[in-house]
């Protein structure tokens, strides 16, 4: 017999963020491209109209019953506002085109785009407004920004970015200053439009990508600056990168939530976050494509057993975007498993 859900998604999420146990485990299916499928159109067409994206989000939540709306389009959408380009695919996430900063010296004169002049960014705000109208105060709406520290691989290329960090700190600082200005304004505009919280994508800060010492003098300070200037709570997402070695730094920067990689032990991350932050994660999205409903059930149960007790945990994938190839059957199986194993109290 299905247990009755007593809380709204918002109540459930806020309760868990308060380190208490809600009625059941909250879970976020961070679906982006699946909305195109739902509406029977190409990914490119889907992201051309903010109403399509809102409709996709509403329909997917109706279908799977997860606990958020997610207004993320694709990472290079922000770069388009800076003058960059995007490549669309039929079966995967849009990717950024060639870096638009061709000469490192151009950073000296780089200026942050005005978000109100960018038709692409305005589309996201429109989607957020539509979802807010639908959700009221019952469903959290998760907005997304790229961190100032993690945008440069799209702005100038990963190799040139590393050269900049290690060999030209003056221009690096200048780029971070401009990116930070943009990031704060962009995040606050989404909060103003109705987003409940901001997911701050910062994969470059992961110890997978830069050493902890370098992160402390760069990415962490930037994170702290951005988060302290946002008018809403922030989840730091390392997009499959490891978080454990820098958990305390992320908490000190003011994050309310951290997303952990499927390469890390969920129980270990949960213990490290205790009393400081909540944990989001960490189902392996790439592997999910090959799951059967039975495997999905086992994976969800395993995650719940490791991290759900006492609240402070939201189940999701580990990357912040479930691959297009993951089937409806698996997404339903994940949702069913949450309702089968995730009601509190969890006494296994």
């Amino acid at each position: 017999m299905m247990i009755k859900e007593e809380m709204t998604s918002m109540e459930r999420v806020l309760t868990t963020l308060g380190q208490e146990e809600p009625d059941r485990l909250p879970y976020f299916l961070l679906l982006t491209m699946h909305g195109a499928n739902e509406l029977g159109m190409s990914i490119k067409e889907y992201f051309s109209n903010p109403e399509y994206v809102a409709e996709g989000q509403i329909r997917m939540r109706e279908r799977y019953g997860h606990d958020c709306y997610y207004t993320f389009y694709y990472a290079s959408l922000e770069v388009e506002a800076w003058g960059g380009s995007t490549i669309f695919y039929e079966d995967g996430p849009a990717n950024s085109g060639a870096p638009f900063i061709k000469n490192i010296e151009d950073i000296k004169n780089l200026e942050a785009p005005d978000i109100w002049d960018s038709p692409q960014l305005l589309k996201v705000l429109k989607t957020t407004e539509i979802l807010k109208e639908q959700a009221g105060d019952e469903v959290p709406i998760i907005g997304v920004v790229m961190s100032p520290f993690s945008t440069p691989p799209m702005q100038l290329g990963f190799d040139k970015y590393f050269d900049l960090i290690y060999e030209n700190r003056e221009l690096f600082d200048r780029l971070m200053e401009v990116n930070t200005e943009f990031c704060i304004e962009w995040a606050n505009a989404q909060l103003e439009a109705g987003a409940t919280a901001i997911c701050y994508f910062d994969p470059v800060s992961s110890p997978t990508i830069v050493p902890k010492e370098l992160y402390r003098e760069t990415g962490n300070k930037i994170e702290q600056n951005v988060i302290s200037n946002l008018n809403g709570p922030t989840a730091v997402h390392l997009a499959s990168g490891k978080a454990l070695p820098i958990i305390d730094d992320i908490a000190d920067a003011g994050a309310a939530v951290v997303c952990t990689s499927s390469l890390e032990d969920l129980a270990e991350v949960k213990a490290a976050c205790k009393g400081k932050m909540s944990v989001l994660g960490n189902l392996n999205g790439i592997d999910m494509r090959n799951w059967t409903p039975e495997i999905a059930d086992n994976k969800v149960k395993e995650a719940i057993d490791k991290a759900a007790k006492g609240g402070g945990f939201i189940l999701s994938d580990n990357h912040g975007e479930i691959p297009y190839q993951v089937s409806d059957e698996v997404l339903i199986a994940i949702s069913d498993a949450v309702r089968k194993h995730g009601f509190y109290p969890i006494n296994r």
Partner: peptide, 14 residues
């Protein structure tokens, strides 16, 4: 083994 970061491997190889 996760003992160093990608940026270090990149700079060393470069």
């Amino acid at each position: 083994n996760g003992d160093i970061a990608l940026s270090q491997e990149y700079m060393a190889s470069k």
